[in-house]
Amino acid sequence: MPLHLYIVRRFLFAIPLIIGITLVAFIIANAVPSDPVSANLPEKSQNDPEIVAAFRREWGLDKSLPEQYVTYLGNVLQGNLGRSIKTKRPVIDDIRQFLPATFELATTSIITGLVLGVGMGIISAVWRGKLVDYVTRTVALLGVSFPVFVLALLGLSILHAQLGLAAGPGRLDVRITKPAAVTGLYIIDSVIAGRADILANALSHLILPSLVLGVYTSGLISRITRSSMLEVLGAEYVRTARSKGLSERVVIMRHAFSNALIPVVTVIGLSFGNLLSGAVLTETIFSWPGIGRYAFQASTSQDFPAIMGISMLIAIIYVGVNFVVDILYFFLDPRIRLA
């Protein structure tokens, strides 16, 4: 199938999926036996029927559930995600504010995870059964199983407070004014603003959280890389390549690794989707104003419009990431192109 037809088909499939997810999110959010009134109004106000009525009217909670859902869908089709009960701003504005922070962190984290994970995976596959294999596998296991918040607090306490090697909580130092928002990504915005100092500061604030999330992600990536590499290294064509007298580096990187990539790309894609939908614990400890914390607060305050908006966003992220992964398959494996 030609690439463009394939893209169109994938896009069309995504639409019912996303609408389905809004319905499921709506049903679950409403099934929780907790009322947005009690989550958002102070005790005394809840005893005043006028204040409660004004609250319900303002947020459309006085309408029936099917009516609320249909109104919501209608608004979404017009590009209106509604207003968050908690922040009182349009949900789309909230997402626009919080998503870049998460995107920036997810990107640096996945790069860290990729470098660490693929590196460890190849090393332990090449030296299978040797000491270095056991060491990297143990490190990978620790990476997956070590609680993220412990790693984060240790990192902050040692690398930031004690040694001053990495910056502390937040996206920038407290006293530094953020760059004018163009993309919301401080790395890019600071470059646009021509401020090397802000760029350096933003990068230094990314070090610790990216390391924490990167180490966590690398555990999974390295395990997949290792097993995938081992499979390929035992294949006939690798033996052929070696017998042709090719250098070990060419054999491993070109012949083995590029053929071992498919499962690795899949797991990287899923990890990236996971990071993009917000790492609540890491964002909380690093005071990272990202989508994970926004989602967490929306759910604790029964903020329906925000919950729905985030559910849709996460659905879109996963659909998007899977889509990119599929396109990558297209280039990595000629057999898919032919199918």
Binding site: L153, L156, S157, A161, G168, P169, G170, T284, I285, S287
Partner: peptide, 12 residues
């Protein structure tokens, strides 16, 4: 400055 976690406040 928003620092949600008390342990992170201590570090800061």
């Amino acid at each position: 400055q928003n620092i949600p976690e008390s342990a992170a406040q201590k570090v800061a």
